[in-house]
């Protein structure tokens, strides 16, 4: 049973994403919509991590011992300015995408494990992650022409 590895990966990804949202909120306080929504989304990620925690612990007991090669580091600090905002939102998007595919795979595994409670958690959370991605995409699409073509 290897589900624990994916639960661990997803849990860490949510914790990392929460942290990255908070860093971006601080770094881009001059963009109030970004700052406010990033703080809100950090709380959403916190809740996801909390909901996952008991499952990660439970499945860890049944896990086979295997080195963790799944952890990916995407975010290495914030940047400034119009293009900096774009790059930071881009990183957040990729981190959210990491969570998104993890939710899909954990959801599939939960079905295989016939774990109704986990299926319920996934159903609730993966929708919220999808909204995060869609918001980040919307905000980046809006910012890109000004940052990449207009700004000198």
């Amino acid at each position: 049973m290897h589900l624990a590895h994916y639960l661990g990966l997803l849990h860490r990804s949510q914790v990392n994403l929460a942290d990255a949202f908070r860093q971006v909120a601080v770094a881009h306080h001059g963009e109030p919509d970004v700052a406010i929504l990033c703080r809100r989304q950090a709380q959403v990620c916190d809740r996801h991590a909390e909901l996952l925690h008991p499952f990660a612990e439970r499945y860890a007991e049944e896990a086979t011992d295997e080195p963790d090669r799944l952890h990916a580091e995407l975010f290495r600090g914030t940047r400034t300015g119009g293009i900096g905002l774009l790059r930071d939102l881009h990183d957040l998007y990729l981190m959210a995408a990491e969570c998104d595919i993890c939710w899909t795979l954990v959801g599939q595994a939960a079905r295989g494990a016939r774990d109704e409670k986990l299926i319920e958690v996934v159903a609730r959370c993966d929708e919220e992650t999808a909204v995060q991605m869609q918001w980040l995409r919307t905000r980046m699409k809006q910012a890109a022409p000004q940052a990449l073509v207009v700004a000198r």
Partner: peptide
């Protein structure tokens, strides 16, 4: 038409940033 027309608060932000 690549995104919605820019809203006022964002226009002021672009002015603040100099673009």
């Amino acid at each position: 038409h690549w995104s919605p027309p820019t809203h006022a608060m964002q226009i002021w932000r672009y002015a603040e940033q100099g673009s």
